Computed example of a mutant assay.
Amino acid sequence: MQFPIRPEMVLIDVDGTLVDSVPDLTFCVDAMMQQLGRPPRGEAAVRTWVGNGVERLVRRALSGTLDGEPTDADFDRAYPLFLELYADNTSKRSHLYEGVREGIDWLAANGYRLGCVTNKAAQFTEPLLRDLGIRDAFELVVSGDTLAEKKPSPAPLLHAARQLGVAPDRALMVGDSVSDVKAARAAGFLGIICMSYGYNHGQDIRSAGPDAVIDSMTQLPTLLSPATD
């Protein structure tokens, strides 16, 4: 892909892209484990497990592995505990990554239409974005439970494009994981830019083949065209 480009819409992921939510997620995982009489998992492990929604995170925490599955009984006991904990700890420790606010401000100032597409459930996404002061930057938010499918399915991205009346080949995705790359490719998006610092199960996101990898959203002006008027 030849940069700079001028998409009509930019969709941005939340966890690992806009927000470092691992501190809150780790608190909730470890508190859940304590209530279950089990040892804590710790932040390093949680960082490799996030990115596919809280249900998957709970399953990983219980099994101690990325692909493991707990028993149904264990999950049915643990999941409500986690939901209750996370409802009270959605944004107490989470924070915007450095450069996010500046990047969003630049996109808005240069006329880019902005949407948010995340695998996090709406009951957590909306308060998190509000508490961190960026909810109003987005015309729409597609959460993990908005549709029947989540990323890496292209469905959430295509839904956002339809809602805003933008052709997929005029839309850009900004994310941090292989799920974002797969979703953008399957949706026929113009491109996918990934953050180097995000959550990709411990793997370098460059191996997923995004169109560009940046260290901060303050670098978006080097890849996107400014307003022409």
Score class of each variant (00 low, 15 high):
Thr222Glu: 15
Pro70Trp: 02
Gly99Asn: 12
Trp106Cys: 03
Thr118Gly: 05
Pro226Gly: 12
Ala73Val: 14
Gly37Gln: 12
Arg56Tyr: 07
Asn52Ile: 05
Gly191Phe: 03
Pro39Tyr: 15
Asp169Val: 07
Asp176Trp: 09
Tyr86His: 12
Phe27Ala: 04
Arg101Asp: 14
Ile193Thr: 10
Cys28Gly: 10
Gly198Arg: 01
Gln2Thr: 08
Ser207Ile: 11
Gln2Tyr: 01
Val166Ala: 06
Glu84Leu: 00
Glu126Asn: 08
Tyr79Ser: 11
Gly68Val: 06
Val142Gly: 01
Leu83Asn: 03
Pro80Lys: 02
Thr65Cys: 10
Asp180His: 10
Ala184Cys: 11
Lys151Asn: 11
Arg56Val: 15
Arg162His: 11
Val58Trp: 08
Arg93Asn: 00
Arg162Val: 08
Val117Leu: 07
Arg130Pro: 11
His95Tyr: 15
Lys151Met: 12
Val54Asp: 01
Arg162Ala: 13
Ala160Pro: 08
Thr218Glu: 07
Arg60Gly: 03
Leu18Tyr: 01
Asn110Trp: 11
Gly191Glu: 07
Met1Ile: 06
Gly188Asn: 10
Pro70Lys: 05
Ala73Glu: 15
Asp131Phe: 10
Ser177Gly: 14
Arg47Asp: 08
Ser177Val: 12
Leu224Pro: 02
Ser91Leu: 00
Ala45Val: 15
Val29Trp: 04
Thr17Ala: 01
Trp49Phe: 15
Pro80Arg: 02
Thr65Met: 03
Ala44Glu: 13
Arg6Ala: 12
Leu223Asn: 03
Glu43Trp: 11
Arg56Gln: 12
Trp106Ser: 06
Gly209Tyr: 02
Val117Cys: 04
Gln219Gly: 00
Gln34Tyr: 11
Asn119Val: 00
His201Arg: 14
Val100Met: 00
Ala78Met: 00
Ala109Leu: 05
Thr218Ile: 15
Gly209Phe: 07
Ile12Ser: 06
Ala78Val: 04
Pro154Gln: 07
Gln203Thr: 14
Arg47Met: 07
Val213Ser: 08
Leu158Ser: 06
Leu128His: 01
Asp74Ser: 04
Val166Tyr: 05
Gly165Val: 09
Asp180Ser: 03
Glu149Gln: 12
Gly191His: 06
Gly133Leu: 00
Val22Ile: 15
Pro210Leu: 06
Phe189Ala: 04
Val100Gly: 05
Leu114Lys: 09
Arg170Asp: 10
Ser179Cys: 10
Asp20Lys: 12
Arg56Gly: 11
Ser225Ala: 15
Ala208Tyr: 09
Thr218Val: 15
Asp88Ile: 02
Val117Tyr: 05
Met33Lys: 14
Thr17Met: 05
Asp136Trp: 00
His159Ser: 13
Cys28Arg: 09
Val178Phe: 11
Ala31Gly: 08
Arg59Met: 13
Lys182Pro: 02
Asp15Met: 07
Gly175Thr: 05
Asp20Ser: 05
Leu220Trp: 05
Thr26Asp: 06
Gly16Pro: 03
Phe27Leu: 11
Ser225Trp: 14
Asp30Gly: 01
Phe27Arg: 04
Ala45Trp: 10
Met33Arg: 13
Asp131His: 10
Val22Ser: 12
Arg162Pro: 12
Leu220Gly: 00
Ala31Trp: 08
Arg185Ser: 06
Leu223Tyr: 03
Pro40Ala: 04
Glu139Met: 10
Ile134Gln: 07
Gln34Met: 14
Phe138Val: 01
Ala161His: 12
Ala121Gln: 13
Pro168Asp: 09
Glu139Pro: 06
Glu139Gln: 10
Thr71Asp: 14
Asp204Cys: 03
Gly202Cys: 15
Val117Thr: 04
Arg162Ile: 10
